[in-house]
Simulated scan of single mutants.
Amino acid sequence: MKTAKTSFAIILITSLFFLWGFALNLNPILIPHLKKACQLSDAQSAFIDSASYIAYFLLAIS
């Protein structure tokens, strides 16, 4: 019984980190398209990129 709860927790944490990593790896691909579509400046597009890494850092320390 305890083994099932432990394995579920490990699977959940692993999948969450996988999904977060997948989203972070999409950023370099999507930001140039977002920059063009929304007519963003270089500073604004850099802020989008840095905001995702800041969020990842805050998630890690909380």
Rank of each mutant, 00 (worst) to 15 (best):
L40V: 00
N25P: 00
T3G: 08
Y56K: 07
I29C: 01
F18K: 03
A37L: 12
I11K: 11
S7W: 09
A43V: 04
L12G: 07
L34Y: 08
Y53R: 08
L26G: 06
W20V: 12
L12C: 05
L19K: 01
D42A: 07
L40Y: 01
Q39G: 04
S62K: 06
C38A: 15
Q39W: 02
L34Q: 09
F8A: 15
A37F: 09
I13W: 02
I48G: 04
I29D: 03
K5G: 04
S50F: 09
L40Q: 01
S41A: 01
Q39D: 14
T14G: 15
S15H: 01
N27V: 15
S41Y: 02
I13Q: 05
I31T: 14
I48L: 15
C38T: 08
S50I: 11
H33A: 14
N27S: 13
S52C: 06
L26Q: 14
A46K: 11
L12Y: 06
H33V: 12
W20I: 13
L40K: 01
I11L: 14
A51C: 03
S7E: 14
T14V: 12
D49W: 04
A23I: 09
F8I: 11
P32S: 04
A60I: 10
A23Y: 08
F47G: 05
W20H: 05
D42L: 04
G21M: 07
A46L: 09
L30V: 10
K5R: 09
S7P: 00
S52F: 13
A23F: 07
T3S: 14
L26Y: 06
N27A: 14
I29T: 11
L58G: 03
L26D: 03
C38M: 15
L19Q: 02
A9Y: 01
A51Q: 08
D49F: 08
F17K: 04
A9L: 10
A51D: 07
I48A: 05
N27F: 11
H33F: 15
L16D: 00
L24Q: 08
S52V: 10
S7G: 00
G21N: 12
